[in-house]
Amino acid sequence: MPQDMPPVGGYGPVQYKRNLPARGFRPAFYLLGTAVVMTLGFYKFGQGVREHNELAREKMWSRIHLIPALTAEEDRDQVRRYLADRAREKELLGTETQVYNSNRFVRPTFAVTPEK
């Protein structure tokens, strides 16, 4: 009995590849697009950071211009309270005590309240 043999001329080709259409563009385009979007975004971000820095500078200088006026007012008030305190002590006790061993101005820790 003759053995089973392939047909004359061999078998036909077997389709092992999927036959689907490739969607979209080539991958290189997507890579390029991402790079463009990222670059643009980082550029705008950098611009924003620089503008933020300038705004911070503006705010800082507005405060710097005001600090002397505010400090002067505060200091005048502190001196007024200090002198009033000294005068009160002189009137009540007849002494002028020096609390600290220096003649610098020390902001008071406790507030002495005048009697009504």
């Binding site: 006026a69 400090t71 002067a72 200091d75 005048r76 610098r104 101005f105």
Partner: peptide
């Protein structure tokens, strides 16, 4: 302003008393 801040800086802790004149100008 600069005068006042410099006065306070150089007043050695007594700026509250010694720089009142500059403070009034400010």
């Amino acid at each position: 302003n600069d005068d006042y801040m410099m006065c306070k800086n150089e007043a050695n802790g007594r700026g509250e008393f010694d720089c009142m004149k500059e403070g009034r100008k400010v």
